[in-house]
Simulated assay, not measured.
Amino acid sequence: MPQSPETPLRLGIVGIGKIARDQHLPSIAASPDFTLVAAASRHATVDGCANFPTIEAMLADGPTIDAVSICTPPHGRDRMVRAALAAGKHVMIEKPPGATVAEIAPLRHHAEAAGLTLFASWHSREAAGVDAARAWLADRTIRRAAITWREDIRVWHPGQDWILEAGGFGVFDPGINALSIATAILPLDLCVDGGTIAVPENRASPIAARIAMRLPGGAPVSLDLDFLQTGQQSWNIEVETDAGTLVLTEGGKRLFVDGAEQATGPDAGEYPRLYRRFATLIRGGRSDVDLRPLQLVADAFLVSRQERVAPFDF
């Protein structure tokens, strides 16, 4: 049932790691739509709310909540989503929504059957330049696109060994942010042709990748991912069209057309916009579960050649 916009939604958060502390908790604290009343984490607590070791304990013994935000690593999220939906809670999932497409896809139907909202969030789609880029590309013919997403794992994921384990996505964890933008702004769906995935000898997930993709009309789209970039980080998408070249930089924050920066409106912040969207979905009785970025990552693993590279340690 749609919720009243005047009443803040009572929220429980699951997983109190770096992304929760850096982004989710400040955004929730500043949100007029949510009040944080509970948290679940094996190793951490949040001041000012009830704390529990697991989502099951939070749902069984915690205060009354309306919604759950899941911020754990992707493996096992589907079980948490099922538990929250079974308890009658709306759910937002940090990206990527799960470790596999098959485990997440059916959950939308469970949410809809229960009259609940499921939101598979993609925070990079909320960057300031993304909406304007989508609008500019909507009626143009794309000739080619190049995605370059290079960042320093030691800066953005310090000591997080899970990200290089099986199911951790490796460099595709940030790379899926680029794909979430690409699938939002390109007027046609992408498919993967192949590529090369570089995996350290002592790890299970890739540290770099070069992937060839294409649009249905044949326009090539390249994806260049690297987790070992030092100095200035590169989060760029360039799209050449029949009417000029569009470039998104800084992870979608700034937009240029033929070298001239375009107005994008105020930058409200990605995570505050995510929580506003979650509240809007709940109050409208709707879900948003777009799995295209996750499907592209799965396809890249399926058809790319793997090569072993030097060991990596933090």
Rank of each mutant, 00 (worst) to 15 (best):
G98N: 05
H24K: 03
T45R: 11
I104F: 05
L85K: 02
T45M: 10
T35C: 14
A39G: 07
R108A: 15
T117G: 11
D66A: 10
S69E: 07
S31P: 03
R77D: 04
E112S: 12
C71M: 15
D61L: 08
V81N: 02
L36R: 01
A44Q: 14
E94H: 09
A20H: 03
R82H: 10
D33F: 13
G62W: 02
I70Y: 00
I93Y: 02
I70L: 04
A50P: 09
A113F: 11
T54F: 08
P74L: 04
F34W: 06
T117A: 11
R108K: 15
A86V: 08
V81G: 03
R77M: 04
R77F: 02
F52S: 03
M92I: 11
A60L: 11
E94P: 04
A114Q: 09
E56V: 11
F52K: 03
I19L: 13
L107S: 06
D66L: 05
M58L: 13
A30G: 14
G76W: 00
I28D: 00
I104C: 04
T117Q: 11
D61Y: 05
P26W: 03
Q23A: 14
L85H: 01
L59V: 06
D47T: 12
V81F: 06
M80G: 05
V101K: 09
T54I: 10
S41Q: 01
H24D: 01
P74T: 04
A67G: 08
I55C: 05
A50Q: 12
D47A: 14
P73H: 01
V81W: 00
A38M: 08
M92Y: 12
D61I: 05
A40R: 00
R79K: 15
A86P: 07
V91K: 07
F34A: 02
C71H: 13
D22M: 14
H109F: 15
A40V: 03
H109I: 15
P53S: 10
L59F: 04
T100L: 03
L118H: 01
K18T: 13
A111L: 07
V68C: 02
G62K: 02
P106R: 14
A111R: 02
R42W: 04
L36W: 01
H110W: 14
K18P: 05
L116T: 06
V37L: 10
G62Q: 06
D33S: 14
